[in-house]
Design a protein around this nucleic acid. Structure first.
Lengths: 152, 152
DNA sequence: TTTAGAATTGGAATGATTCTAAAGCAAGTC
DNA sequence: GACTTGCTTTAGAATCATTCCAATTCTAAA
């Protein structure tokens, strides 16, 4: 194994992942597999499933197992470095975009795209929640037909 | 089997379900099991899972199977008479509330409550979606701590 | 260099749901 | 009123996504 593939908490070559860890103060041991899983996800805009990620990581690490992909995704998710997305039942999808955004899901082609806020959004302004309720996060999924499918 | 338990499309005793079918123009054969599944759900405010519904329906129809509950839920859902809710991966939950609302999920006790809009909400005003996108529905899940759990 | 604690692995196990084939019912037809 | 046709219901098998497990390998610190 080459030195650059050794796991470490003090990387010699900072990448997006290390910057993100520094900004978030996340403490995850950075193994080669975790880095690859993150890199694959960061390079994807299609909200891949665990199987999609396995396929893509296999190009670099042919021996990686599905269990390891799930394991890496779990660790990265609980460190807050990536997000798990549930649009419908079935496979979970993953997303490396940590900016505030919501997901648009095309019911025709299945594509998922990120939509960023045009203006500030405070859910407590729109929905009546019992007094004393504390909000930690909101998940908005918008379902419909994407522009490409609507044009057909 | 008593006459009132006979399936029909033209009920003699209208219930919430028949009114709802009439309003929505839904066409579902109303079998005793479907009616029971609907009644159980309509009487529940806790967003039960298929298993929860099975338990409750068994009080009236001890012989009903899980497959039938799933089958009834599918038919009622596709007729638009009830809604399927996915708050996290795992079991789907079901909801007979068809008014515009969002779900608040308490991460401490697991409780799910409906929150109704205080004011009009148009997702297209808040998030930048590509031109030509058509929205059919939006699912907002608000996660946090409910008032009871927050008070502890 | 030793050693304790993680990470990784393949395969088994789990949980939720869906499928399947057989049997039961209901509505309309002769 | 028996027959046909098609939906409904059922138990159990199958599937799918994920999680668990026990064995092995790797890493970091002493």
């Amino acid at each position: 194994m080459t030195p650059s593939a050794t796991s470490t908490r003090v990387p010699s070559k900072p990448t997006g992942l290390e910057c993100r860890m520094a900004v978030l103060g996340a403490d995850v041991r950075l193994t080669p597999h975790r880095r690859e899983v993150f890199d694959v996800l960061a390079a994807s805009t299609d909200h891949p499933t665990a199987y999609d990620i396995l396929d893509r990581v296999k190009a670099r690490s042919p021996g990686i197992s599905l269990a390891t992909v799930y394991n890496c995704l779990d660790h990265l998710t609980s460190a807050g470095l990536i997000k798990q997305v549930h649009l419908e039942r079935g496979q979970s999808r993953y997303c490396a975009n940590l900016h505030e955004h919501v997901h648009f899901h095309c019911e025709t082609c299945g594509k998922v795209i990120d939509a960023h806020p045009a203006t500030d959004f405070d859910p407590a302004k729109f929905w009546n929640l019992p007094k004393g309720t504390r909000i930690t996060r909101t998940d908005l999924a918008i379902h419909g037909t994407c522009d490409a499918c609507a044009a057909k």
